[in-house]
Design a protein around this nucleic acid. Structure first.
Ligand SMILES: [Mn+2]
Ligand SMILES: [Mn+2]
Ligand SMILES: [Zn+2]
Ligand SMILES: [Zn+2]
Lengths: 167, 167
DNA sequence: GAACATCCTGCAATTTATTCTCAATAAGCT
DNA sequence: AGCTTATTGAGAATAAATTGCAGGATGTTC
């Protein structure tokens, strides 16, 4: 995915029969200026824009992030929190993946070029067109492990078996 | 296949202060006998059990699949349909990943051992403990591409739905 | 194996994320 | 400018998922 500008976004929208709007431009701009590692929910995005005096209705937020995700401009993240998060979909070499702790939702990003490469290969082989690929690793973080996971952890729940039973 | 038995499931549950119940056993059994490539939502699981005369309340279904996912027995899939799906979490060499068409939700499974390997490496390097890893590739399928995606698609057109097994 | 503590289930009610409806507006085209 | 239609905002509607509670079941301890 290229780095979009207002006019390249407009071009891409128009090419598909869609329209450029101030709302879409503001959303793109916000994501492009978000520090790396930030993942916004629709609500958070709404509130952030609100705080900047750029009121955009929540309906439009939802419609926009969905559209922009399907266009490959944003990526829709399904981390472990019950709602979606969005971030800019950046091309190689900024493309990255996520490790998530199911105990505390801590999320860390990591780069791995070969995953995108293999995804592209697999996708082309099937005749599909890649929009995004995400490797999400669900884990228990070091803190939870230090606390004695799984037996000594506070009641709620814990995890048990890693599928890592060997090569 | 490294399947759980009723007694090994009971052992794991009890080790964490939880209990074996007929409901949990039936859910495990159902997933273990599900043809490969099937992904069940909570509702579908509920209906399937209902059809087998094994009525289990929907609340219990939800609670069970969540618990079993955190235990690493099931994996929770976030494909592009607005609700979660579940399948058995199988270790190498049955571990697999998914390609999904965002237009019609068609899903293809594929194996790729190096992804699990790299996930393990990355996870250990960070001091986390892996429960599951899923590479999800969001795409446009060949059918939708042939129909002129994105602009030329009739508003209610939809690809043929299928789940194809891939090697 | 009976008593006990507490975990689990089923049901209904509730929460929450996301989509939908529709009249008004505005973008893109000629 | 005028026309067509995509898009917006506001709220209602939908659907997935969670929760509170009372009765029932499970595992543990004597
Ligand atoms: Mn990220
Ligand atoms: Mn699968
Ligand atoms: Zn954690
Ligand atoms: Zn498709």
């Amino acid at each position: 995915m290229p780095n979009y500008t207002a006019s390249s976004l407009k071009a891409e929208l128009n090419a598909r029969g869609w329209r450029m709007t101030p709302q879409r431009e503001k959303i793109l701009y916000l994501f492009q200026n978000l520090p790396r590692g930030n993942h916004l929910s629709a609500e958070e995005l709404h509130d952030l824009l609100e705080g900047q005096g750029e009121g955009i209705s929540l309906s439009t937020i939802y419609r926009s992030v969905k559209l922009m995700s399907r266009m490959g401009i944003l990526r829709e993240l399904e981390l472990a929190e019950g709602h979606k998060h969005y971030e800019l979909n950046q091309p190689y070499p900024h493309h990255h993946h996520h490790i998530v702790c199911v105990q505390c939702n801590k999320t860390i990003e990591f780069n791995n070029d070969s995953i995108l490469k293999q995804s592209l290969k697999q996708t082309e082989k099937e005749g599909f067109q890649l929009i995004d690929c995400q490797l999400t690793i669900t884990t228990i973080c070091p803190e939870a492990l230090r606390m004695g996971w799984p037996s000594a952890l506070p009641s709620n729940w814990s995890c048990t078996r890693a599928i890592a039973d060997k090569k």
